[in-house]
Design a protein around this nucleic acid. Sequence first.
DNA 1: GCTGAAATCACCCAAAAGTGTGAGGGCTGA
DNA 2: TCAGCCCTCACACTTTTGGGTGATTTCAGC
Lengths: 151, 151
Amino acid sequence: MLSDVSKSWWANILLYGLCLGLLLAALQFSQYRLLSFGNSEKWYMGLIATLFAVLGIWAGRKLTRKPKPAEAFIAPEFRPKEEVLKQLGMTPRELEVLEQMALGLSNQEIAEKLYVSLNTVKTHTSNVFSKLDVQRRTQAIQRAKALGLIA
Amino acid sequence: MLSDVSKSWWANILLYGLCLGLLLAALQFSQYRLLSFGNSEKWYMGLIATLFAVLGIWAGRKLTRKPKPAEAFIAPEFRPKEEVLKQLGMTPRELEVLEQMALGLSNQEIAEKLYVSLNTVKTHTSNVFSKLDVQRRTQAIQRAKALGLIA
DNA sequence: GCTGAAATCACCCAAAAGTGTGAGGGCTGA
DNA sequence: TCAGCCCTCACACTTTTGGGTGATTTCAGC
């Protein structure tokens, strides 16, 4: 099955292919008028070449540039990698605590934000650390980002 | 004065401009042979157009793609923003400690790595925190990254 | 030679973080 | 219904971190 990203990629290919085809057709059509102009073909050819070069640059930019958030086909929201989460056995609550941790909050602040006790947060953080195989929260944040668990 | 980045940019422009010029020259030259071929110009023109489209795509890619480490003109090493450092009054040693901190090391580990005492590291970290206007190391790392002080 | 910035270190104290154990309640699938 | 997972919380303990003060040394600049 196709992901959203690859689908939009194919849409781009089709779009630009269509543009190219149209331009080629226009080129074909213009041949008839051109021939009556005699030896000015040289300049005409240069014009066509330049036109296609510009088109190529434009297409190249469009095709290779990363889509900006505003123009993206799909929402660029962050999604934690589910397979990694499952593999580590990370529970939803633990991930939540991890996210707050990455925001620079203290355990106490996390507890207040999530409406649980400080001890509960400590339990979660401990579990997170052992699952990520780290000793400190700074390492946990690093690792979680590297694994794509948090933004 | 030109920065290294903008210098390489101009070098790219020159290079691709040269390629374009060469191709145009080749086009001019080939006109003579072409004319004797009679009405096969149509296909020839299409070929030229395709050629330039490909060239354009190639140039577009080259011009807009971020240079990879291996192919970059200049070393893509991280450079902390000097003006921000000066503005914050961050000393070289403090920055060094900050970097180690961002690697997830404890104060003790930083002390061993930098061959100083734990107390010295604590002094540095304290200074870093007050200069970055934060209370915890997690926040300091966040802020330093946001300010472009560390990678 | 004086001054100031930077780096070094010590000591003390408080707060936060991390470790380990135990335990109760809720929800779910076998 | 019952085992298993998850979430919750407590308590005790150690380690780490952060804050404040003060001191010494080195070194560049005036």
